[in-house]
Every structure is written in C-alpha cells, then in structure tokens.
Write a protein that binds this DNA or RNA. Structure first.
Lengths: 170, 170
DNA sequence: TGGACCGTTCAATTTTTAATGAACTCTACG
DNA sequence: CGTAGAGTTCATTAAAAATTGAACGGTCCA
C-alpha cells in the first residue's frame, strides 16, 4: 500500500514556507514600481537564499521559464540589484542578491526614472516652441504659465531624487 | 464647388497642437506611476485648459468613453488632483486641475503607497512568526537577519515619504 | 570536429489590464 | 408622476504586457 502514493511526495526543490512568503512579498512589491511579477520572484528568492543560485535553480524552484529568468536576471543586473559570483559548477553563472536598499533604489532611478525625465525635458522644449507660435496673446500667456509650471515640476523632481539617495545612503 | 468637401473640415472640438502635446506628455508621464493612459489624458487636458471642463467635454475632446472618464475623474478626485467647480451649465459638474505638484504626489503617496506599506508590515509580522518556527539554528539566524533587513527597509521608506512631501512643500 | 550544455533571443501565446457601452440610478423640472 | 439628461456601474471586449518555448550562438572538453 501507498506505493507510488502522493502523500507527502514533496518536489525536491519546492520552496519552503518562508521562501514562499518572501518570494510572494517581492513579487507583489515590485508591482508598485511597475515591474513584472517574475522579476520580483527572482530577486526575492535570491534575497532569501543563503547560497548563490544559478539560472537553472531559479527556473526549477520558481517554476518559470528559462526565457523569463534570463530576461529577469538581465534586468536585475543592469539595476545592480544582483551580483555574479563563483559557484560549485564552473560552467554556470551564479547570482547573489545585493541587499542594500540604496543600490536598488539607485539603480531604479538611474535606469527607469532618469531616462523618462530626460525625454520629458526635450518634450517641454518642443512645447515651448509651440507656445511661441500662439497668436492669441492671452492664450499664449496662459500656456506659457503652464509650461513654466511643468518646468518647475521637473526641477523639483531633479532635486528630490538625489535627496532620496542620500537619505538611504547610510 | 467645395460643398461638403473634406478639406480643412476640422472637428469642432479637436485638440490644438499644444493641447495634444500636453495630453500626450501626461499620458506617458502617469505610466511611470503605473496608472492607465486615460487618467493621464484627462488630467493633462484639465491642466492645459484655462476654463473648467465637464465630463462630456472630456469624452468628446479626448475621444474616450463616458465610462473611462467617469472612472478616471473618480480616481483623480480621491487623489485630490482635480477640483469640482461651478460652470455655465448648472446641471453639470465641472472640473479644474489642481496644479500643485505637492498635492498630486501627496495624494499618490496617501492613496497608492501607504496602503501597500501597511500590508507589507503585516506580511513581515507573519514572516517573523514563520522564522520563529525554523528548527535549524543557523538557518534561523540567516532568515532572521534578512527579515530584520526588510524591516529596516520599511522604516527607511517611512522616513523618505514625508521628506519628499516637505521638499515639494514650498 | 562534434556534441553537450549554458545562456540568449524573439515570435507566438497566455494572462492581465484598460476601455467600452448598455443598463442603471438619481435629480430636477414640467 | 413622467421624462430628460448627468453621472455611475459593471459585464463584455479590446489592447497591452508578460510568459513561454523553440531555435540559435557560444564555449568547453573529449
């Protein structure tokens, strides 16, 4: 009896409860930053793992595809949220999570926010040019005021970002 | 000739170029905050309009459905990003954009970020409980350290949010 | 040189999210 | 009351985003 039964037939690599919770916490967490769930899962598992993991570990343990993991790792690498390290198998690349909040936020600001702000600056330039063409004087005055307001916003944002980084920086 | 022709048959309510650019700027802009395009469009048009607009104006000029506009206005209201004001037609509700960055960011933090952080706090509590159950002592020590790290993150976030608001507050 | 294996890429697919529009409520007015 | 118009709701549909997986490129070693 019980031959081939399913009771307590645990998958060898399944996440333990603590890991499950941390992975899920990060999976939800990254969504406020508009990032895909899988990226949170990958970072979460690295965060909660004492030993470095290779791509294949992530594929098996999180049960997501090789493609997703590859892309997720690429993204986390550009953010500086993970580190490549040596591991048991020399053929593989192993990863560790970088657990400094400063690093994560810094990477996110650099890779995701700065570019938007740069393009915003250009678009404001274009807007200014458009406002200059406006014939109706009172309309022009109004538009001009609004564009000025936007420019002030951008300046404030530029001021806030480094401030955030400084506060996280100790 | 030219009776019923299409040349320069401009839609009476089409956006002018400046409006188009501002609407598009906000439509893209809100995406970094993970909000739907339509919300950016609505706020954008209110931002760039000298006079208050009613729902129907937004439906016609942005060419989006009544349902979307209704939901978008509801969201912007809870954020405090727009104001109800009087207008020509007493039967309708007119809206103006609130153009203080402080207000927008404050509303976003209050409505979108705080709730996440609250639930995060609860989940960390649950994690702590789970770690307490861990039998292996060295594993427990490791998990404990990580959970402590997460708690520190949360505290740092709580520190940063009011700071942001203060910097935008003048 | 060849084949085993790690990792990447990207077109196809699935899943998630946003937008639509018909049905509804509510109010004001005759 | 009854109807007309403003505004909301929500099931359906459409659009966007994430995920998959098969094909590919590179490298190491026999």
């Amino acid at each position: 009896m019980c031959l081939g039964g399913f009771v307590s037939e645990a998958k060898p690599n399944a996440l333990v409860e603590i890991e499950r919770q941390v992975v899920s916490l990060f999976a939800d967490g990254v969504r406020v930053a508009g990032l895909p769930r899988s990226i949170g899962e990958i970072y979460g598992l690295l965060f909660v793992s004492a030993d470095p993991l290779a791509m294949d570990d992530l594929v098996v343990r999180l049960n997501i595809s090789k493609g997703s993991v590859s892309q997720g790792l690429k993204f986390l690498r550009t953010l500086g949220a993970i580190r490549e390290v040596e591991g048991p198998d020399v053929r593989r690349t192993y990863y560790e999570g970088d657990i400094e909040l400063k690093k994560l936020v810094g990477g996110f600001i650099r890779e995701q926010m700065r570019p938007h702000m740069e393009s915003g600056k250009d678009r404001l330039k274009a807007l200014e040019a458009e406002v200059a063409k406006e014939e109706d004087e009172s309309k022009q005055a109004f538009y001009d005021e609004r564009v000025k307001k936007l420019e002030r916003w951008l300046k404030q944002a530029k001021l806030v970002l480094p401030l955030i980084q400084r506060v996280l920086g100790e």
